[in-house]
Structures are given as structure tokens and as C-alpha cells.
Write a protein that binds this DNA or RNA. Structure first.
Lengths: 345, 345
DNA sequence: GGGTCACGTTGCAACGTTACAACGAATATT
DNA sequence: AATATTCGTTGTAACGTTGCAACGTGACCC
């Protein structure tokens, strides 16, 4: 709340200066800027010349003050610089700018305080809406914001609230899609690799896969539990598998693409054919996983579309503030089939 | 320039409302917000209560208008959602907030128009400074901005200008560091893998490495040219190498970490020991490359520090606008030694 | 007791923009 | 010819905040 005082800066040309130079009133310049059609072409040309000559750039600050709000929304992300959020941001920005909105980003809500601080900053900036990927339970804070006229949409909020719009991903459906893809490709003996006990998203994915596989085959899936979700965890899991001497599964469904790549390479290193003997399926849709030794099939989360839809929902809610109904949208991941789950031999 | 008119929004409590509720004048509330020490504790407490009760959040818009500028800087990045820019942004935000500055991001300057548009938006927002990773030659535009009182710092600008501050990375020095590291680890026969003909950064890295190796050993480095810089390009290069029947090099210096990982896995799959028979060195400092089957040594670009320094330079330039001297800072990448370049046997 | 001083508080004006009502001039209508 | 209509332009006031000079009050000193 407390901040060092601002110092005054050197003056820059304003509408008045433009008006003086063009020989019209400030109002006409304002009209030129906001409703060019009501200004007669001759005047328009003179103003245009003056604008150019002075290097006039409209002071958005004053404009926003005058209007009471800026045509601006904010996106609060956690720090993680992962591709998923990159795609998401692109979706947000595209959808927003298509409707004439400007997006302010905060990519660095690393810790909970910072996340709250970002919200405060954006409220002070009088953005009209906020998209947030919450790290903590922000519901009461977001409700406050909505009460004060700032619409909110949560993205991937673990526990959604009825009065706050949201978009989320159905991890269980993603797991089911994975299972279905593997079964359709002719595999019924599926091994899950990941850490469902530590990451709830992973647990949901595995639950979905097991559920579907059980429905179709009557038996479940094996699991190798890893510590983390890195390349090495994937390698280690396969080493453990090979050492155990157990028969190979027909397919491996990894908790994410890194684990899948680690597993893939370890299998290849052991002389096991992929997808000939074992299929490998990842999760996340990392773009460069398509360039692995064997292009990796994966379950892609529609990050870009999530960004678009979240933004469109936000815009709808902002426009129709009188209809206070919150909207919810649940996305289903889809399988991107590449070589690593191609036909078995 | 032309934009749809803004509509007026519902009113929110301002300093006046707080003042009325607390039984003081608006000026006192302003003092409370900006110079709390001049307000006597009793009054302070009453204002604090009023602020809390009304949910008052200071209107940054009005504050900025009044001050003629906001304590805000902007960072214009290209779209690439690569870890390097993530680290860079963190550095920028940390350095900025340490000094009480707010950072606006634009991560989506995908194409040249958009990049220019971002600059325009930020100028209209009256930011005091702009950090930019230019895609195109922005020098004249940046000079305009500086003339109008907005300081600029370019990051990684291919061709820097004297009157615009910059931070950049010395790729040649990075290549030399790589060469030195490999030679120090006991290897003199080094193979470069990448596409120097397509990417100038890669060319500079390879040139630096070759330069140093030649100085120290009297002979240069072999090269395998790849098409792109993906995992598969790394694998392919090693396949080509093995097929050629030529003797293995003692070390491989790859153009980036992905290529290095591809090469690494292909070597391991062929039963070649890393680092026992061949050392592998990447470039970029991807965090998760530490979790490869053999943790990958790499040349790390000090992205975080670049962000910090760039921001500090910007702040210096903004503060001392009277001293118009531009500052330049060139970074040297450093080697992160992990297992893949450990002792040869 | 008159004068000085320090301190906390206040009134005012201004930042640059824009919505709106009002205006004059030219054109159309009766 | 007088009135109505349209059109482009203009003057004014306000958005919420804050720096500054001015203010009243009480403490202090000679």
C-alpha cells in the first residue's frame, strides 16, 4: 500500500498542443481519436499532420482515469515457465486483442504473497477482469474483487466455486483417452509410470486410465511409482522393470512427456523395439517430443484453446455484468498419435 | 491509434470517501498513503479503519496521471516461450521490484507489427523505460522513444547502437569456454554438432570453440552439420558418424542441449560410454538436462543475471536522465560441469 | 505575555482526456 | 422567406490523486 512518491516528469505534447497546431479545439482532436468519422476529412488531415509532427501519443493513463476503467484484463500465472502456460498466454492474448482488449501479464507469482500482490496491483490499475491460475485458495479474494466490479475467471483451480467462472481440464477424461488409445492400438497390458501419490493431476490421469482399461478388459494396470517427473525418473523406472525380470508390458503410459522420453530411451538402449514390442504414451503435448528418436505419442492439453475460452468467458461476464451467472467450461485432453504408439508387430 | 470508446463504470470508493468516513481531509488520506510518517498515529488508525471498511484500493491510474509517469517499466519479448526468457523475466522482475518498480510484460511480440504495437501500447501507458529483445532493427524507433523521455535497453540486439544501452551475450566467448572445458578435461579431438550455416549464434559458438582449440592444440574441430536443433537431429548426427566408420571423437560439443541429449542417447544406445569414451557438452543450461540418463554438462547463459543487469542499467539511465550516456554490458556464458564431461578413462 | 517555532492538517489547483450539451453555419423543407 | 434539420465543431466539467503553500494550534523561550 505504501509506495515511494512519484516524481514529476518532463511534459509531452497532449491533445491541446495538437489542437493548437491544427487550429482546432481539443474536443475535435478527441473526436478525431475516438470517432474519426464525425470529423470532416479536411480537418482530419490537418490533425493527422499535427499529430505526426509533434509525435503525439495518446496518454492512456488520462483516458483510463476519465473512463473509470481501462479496456484491460490481467493474467496472473505462477512462475513456472512451462510450455503449457506459454500456449495458454497466446490463447489469452489472441482472444483478448481480437476484441480490442489489452492484456497485462504477471508471470512471477512464485509464492502466495506475490500472487496476492499481483492481484492488488491489477486492482489498483483498474483492470476490468482478471484471469488467474491460482496456487492457493483465492476464492474469498476473488469474490471481493467481483463485488468491487472486477470479473474473474480461474484456470485449473483445484476446487472451483459456483460464483466464480472457471475453465479446467478433466484429467480423468485424459486418462481415459489414453487408455482407449492404447487399447484401440491393440494393447491391453498397460503399465503406468509416475507419482500419483504426490501429484493429484497424475493420480487423476492414472485413475481415468485404469477405469477405462478395467471396463474394457476386466483387469487393471500395473504401476511403477517414481519420485519425480524427470527424464531420469523415466529411465530409472524402466531399469527397475528390467531388473525385476517381469515380462514387459505391451504399453507404457507415463505421467508426462519427460518421463515418457526417459522410458523411451531406456527401452531403446536395452534393445527393445518401440513401438514394436512396447508402446510409449506421454502426457502434456511437448512440441519437441515429436522430434525424439521415436516421435512420442502424447495426450495434449488444449492450452491455447483454454486461454481463448477463458478469455471469451471473461469478456462475456464483463459485458453482461448484470447477469451475474458464472460460467464453467471443462476441457477434455486429446491424444496426439505419433510413432511411439504405432501398430504392434 | 483508433480505439472503441470506453464506457463508464460503476463508481468505487476514493480518497474522498475514505476521508469523509475517517473525518479528515482528502489530503490527509493522501499523506497517509504516501508519507505515513507525517500523519499522527491516532489519525492514521482512523484512516486505516476507513480504508479497510470501504475496501479502498488506490487508483493507480489517477496517481500516474497526476505524476506524469508511472513507476513502471515494460519488457517486450518475442513469443518464444523458452526457458531462457523465463529466467530473464525473473531477473527483470526481481531487480525491478527490489527498487519499487512494476513490470509490464508483453510475451507475444510474435511478429514485427506486434512488436511495434507493444511499444506503442507501452508508450501510451507512459511507462518510464522499456526493455526489449528485438526481433527486427528497432533502433530508430527506440531513439524516438528516448527522445520523448522513455529510456530503452536492448537485450541481445544483433547490432547494438551506441546511443541505446544494451546487454548481450558473447557467443564466441561461450564457444571458447566450451573448448577450454573440454580440453581441460583431457580431450583434444572435438566434434561440433549443429547448424552454424543457419543460426548465427551457433556459428559464433563454433567459431569460438574452434579458435580456442586451435590455439591450444594446433588443430581444429570436426563438424557434423545438422538440419535443425532437435533431439532427432542429435541422434541422426551420431548415426551418421557411426555409419561413416570414422573413429569416435573424444568429445562432442553440441549447438544446444536438445541436440546434445539426442546425441547422448544415441551414443548410449550404441553401447558407447559417456563420458568414458566420449564426452558430451550441450549449450543453453536447460534445467532438466541435469536429469538425463547421464546428467548433461552444458554452457549456461546467465539469463537471470542478464535480466537483473539490464534492469539495473535501465534504472540508472532513467534516474540520471541528465547524463545521456548509454551503457553496455556483455555477458560471458559459463560451463556447468556435470557427468557427461567427467574424466575420461 | 508576546513572539517564535514545529507540527499536523487542509484547500486548491492541476495532471490529460473525453462525454455532453450547446453552438453556429449551411442545407433542406414548407 | 421563414423555419426546421443536419452537420461539424466547441466550451465546460469531471474522472481521482497529490504537491504545495497556507493554516491553526499548542509548546517553548526570553
Amino acid at each position: 500500500m505504501t509506495t515511494p512518491p512519484l516524481s514529476i516528469r518532463s511534459p509531452r505534447p497532449g491533445v491541446k498542443d495538437v489542437a493548437a497546431l491544427a487550429g482546432v479545439s481539443a474536443s475535435t482532436v478527441s473526436n478525431y481519436l475516438n470517432r474519426p468519422d464525425v470529423v470532416v476529412p479536411a480537418t482530419r488531415a490537418r490533425i493527422e499532420r499535427a499529430v505526426h509532427q509533434l509525435g503525439f501519443v495518446r496518454n492512456e493513463t488520462a483516458r483510463n482515469l476519465r473512463a473509470g476503467a481501462s479496456r484491460t484484463i490481467a493474467l496472473v500465472l505462477l512462475d513456472a515457465w512451462i510450455p503449457f502456460y506459454g500456449e495458454l498466454s497466446r490463447g489469452v492474448e489472441d482472444a483478448a486483442s481480437a476484441d480490442g482488449w489489452t492484456v497485462l501479464f504477471s508471470n512471477s507469482a512464485r509464492n502466495p504473497e506475490r500472487e496476492l500482490h499481483s492481484l492488488e496491483i491489477f486492482e489498483a490499475q483498474r483492470v476490468q477482469g482478471i484471469l488467474v491460475v491460482p496456487q492457493q485458495d483465492l476464492r474469498s479474494r476473488l469474490r471481493d474483487l467481483q463485488r468491487r466490479g472486477i470479473s474473474c475467471v480461474t484456470i485449473e483451480q483445484p476446487s472451483a466455486a459456483d460464483d466464480i467462472s472457471s475453465v479446467s481440464i478433466d484429467d480423468v477424461a485424459g486418462g481415459r483417452a489414453a487408455g482407449a488409445h492404447l487399447i484401440d492400438s491393440g494393447r491391453t497390458d498397460i503399465l503406468l509410470v509416475g507419482n500419483p501419490d504426490r501429484v493429484s493431476h497424475v493420480a487423476a490421469r492414472f485413475a481415468g486410465c485404469t477405469e477405462l482399461v478395467t471396463e474394457r478388459t476386466g483387469h487393471g494396470c500395473g504401476v511403477i511409482t517414481t519420485e519425480g517427473l524427470t527424464l531420469r525418473d523415466g529411465s530409472r523406472a524402466i531399469q527397475k522393470l528390467l531388473e525385476s525380470g517381469k515380462p514387459l508390458p505391451q504399453a507404457i503410459f507415463a505421467a508426462n512427456d519427460l518421463v515418457a522420453l526417459g522410458a523411451l530411451h531406456e527401452l531403446l538402449a536395452a534393445g527393445i523395439e518401440v513401438p514394436g514390442q512396447v508402446a510409449v504414451l506421454g502426457y502434456d503435448g511437448l512440441e519437441w517430443a515429436a522430434h525424439a528418436s521415436v516421435p512420442l505419442s502424447t495426450v495434449a492439453q488444449p492450452a491455447y484453446e483454454m486461454g481463448c475460452i477463458a478469455t471469451q468467458i471473461l469478456i462475456t461476464v464483463m459485458d453482461g455484468r448484470e447477469h451475474p451467472g458464472a460460467q464453467h467450461h471443462v476441457f477434455r485432453p486429446t491424444v496426439i498419435a505419433r510413432e511411439s504408439t504405432g501398430r504392434a508387430k
